[in-house]
């Protein structure tokens, strides 16, 4: 067993877990934060994307122990109370989802993309940047629209909300 101490959505947590525990398992099973999804479990689909120390990572491809001492942000930590994060609001406004399974990962990836590229990001760049996130409903068109709108409307705010 290994002791893991980190902050998750701003709250400090310490847990003893098996050494082989993946970060996604730690979030979902140990902490009960089931907003982060396991899709492919082979590092390809991006349903498990969370932020570790401010950058997007695939939590199925990282041990909980590797996140020791880090700040983790999950989909549950994005909204401010009842107020959706601008990227969440844009996904709702533009219907950037169909079944919704990929949505938490898409949104966490999108927040990271907007942080890195700012409000002026173009559609080609968004599509390229979403390479690590798969929507099996093939709902990409509205996802891209939502990311672009969120970038345009709230590029600066997305960063402030981190």
């Amino acid at each position: 067993m290994v002791s893991v101490s980190l902050t998750v959505n701003g709250k400090a947590v310490t847990r003893e877990v098996e050494d082989r525990t993946l970060l996604v398992g730690f979030l979902r099973e140990t902490l009960g934060l089931t907003g982060t999804h396991v899709g492919c479990d082979t590092s390809q689909c991006g349903a498990c994307v969370v932020h570790v120390d401010g950058v997007a990572v695939k939590s199925c491809t990282m041990l909980a122990a590797q996140a020791d001492g880090c700040a983790v942000l999950t989909i549950e930590g994005l909204a401010q109370g009842d107020q959706l994060h601008p990227v969440q609001a844009a996904f709702r406004e533009h219907h950037g989802l169909q079944c919704g399974f990929c949505t938490p990962g898409m949104i966490m990836a999108a927040v990271d993309i907007i942080r890195r590229h700012g409000p002026g990001i173009d559609e080609t760049t968004i599509r390229h940047e979403l390479e690590g996130n798969i929507c099996r409903c093939t709902g990409y068109h509205n996802i891209v629209k939502a990311v672009k709108a969120a970038a345009e409307q709230s590029g600066g705010m997305a960063e402030a909300a981190e």
Binding site: G46, A56, V57, K58, T61, M62, A109, E131, G132, N133
Partner: peptide, 9 residues
């Protein structure tokens, strides 16, 4: 290389 999340790690 890979995708953005892979490049971060």
């Amino acid at each position: 290389i890979g995708d953005p999340q892979v490049r971060h790690r």
